[in-house]
């Protein structure tokens, strides 16, 4: 059983390590974003009066833990595109005709892509620890564990969508359309509890919002969602995230089982 999961994880990670230019591209992108966006706003909002907005945090300490979650989200979700490449280059047929259960090979695939996106997020976070001293390293193991849960959910979401599609362009279009609003609404860049009510409701539909808030909670001890609804503490958030991820994994398995080569 587990060997079928393992072998596809192995393949996804091997492929990632081979794609050196892609790794470099993602890294450079992330660093530039942190520097220009992060530092830019951090300097703009450096006065004491602004820290009230972030429940006592400065902007960098507010932003950096959230970037860990959003970068995992983006790479995980985009990871589904490899299913489409495999359709185009034929490798998918090799997997579909093998006796290994499809639900397990797809789980291995999701796990492989999740590990890749967590590594990516951790590189991002390493820069974060370099930029500010206000992050608490004790929360790191919890943040990473939570990262794995969300990564599995979002890679599954990508895989489920990719299973039903044939062109990488179409997939990119969908991913682009979903990624942007989810990232903005997640409260990663501004405190979502200050936003209009209707935006807050939209934000609470998206599981990324919980992931961002949890990550911030683990690394700084500050949660913004519980100031919107007191019952929305970190325990509830984690539970909601777990349920969503599990549901997405099951959907991905179902979708992939039904994939044909037509």
């Amino acid at each position: 059983m587990i060997e079928y999961v393992y072998i596809m994880t192995y393949r996804q990670i091997k492929r990632f390590i081979r794609a050196k230019s892609r790794i470099a591209g993602t890294l450079i992108n992330n660093i530039l974003w942190l520097l220009f966006f992060g530092l830019g706003w951090a300097y703009t909002l450096r006065g004491q009066q602004f820290q009230v907005l972030f429940k006592g945090l400065d902007y960098l300490a507010f932003l950096l833990p959230a970037t860990f979650a959003t970068s995992i989200f983006q790479t995980s979700f985009m990871g589904g595109i490899s299913v489409i490449w495999d359709k185009q280059f034929g490798f998918l047929k090799e997997v579909l005709v093998a006796p290994a259960p499809r639900s397990l090979t797809i789980l291995g695939r999701a796990l492989g892509d999740s590990i890749v996106s967590i590594v990516n997020g951790m590189i991002m976070l390493a820069f974060g620890f370099g930029l500010t001293s206000k992050l608490n390293p004790v929360g790191l193991p919890l943040a990473i564990a939570m990262g794995l849960v969300m990564a599995l959910g979002f890679t599954s979401m990508g895989i489920a969508i990719a299973s039903a599609m044939t062109s990488p362009e179409g997939f990119q279009l969908i991913v682009g359309t979903i990624t942007m609003p989810m990232t903005l609404l997640s409260g990663s860049m501004f405190p979502i509890n200050m936003a209009p009510q209707w935006m807050q409701i939209l934000a609470l539909i998206s599981p990324l919002t919980y992931a961002v808030d949890l990550c911030r909670y683990y690394l700084t001890g500050v949660s913004l969602l519980d100031s919107m609804y007191p019952w929305l503490n970190h325990g509830t958030e984690l539970l909601l995230l777990l349920i969503t991820s599990l549901a997405l994994i099951i959907v991905a398995m179902r979708m992939f089982e039904r994939t044909t080569i037509e």
Partner: peptide
């Protein structure tokens, strides 16, 4: 008939 190898491996 069509190739089905993983070219990056």
């Amino acid at each position: 008939q069509d190739p089905s190898l993983d070219l990056n491996l």
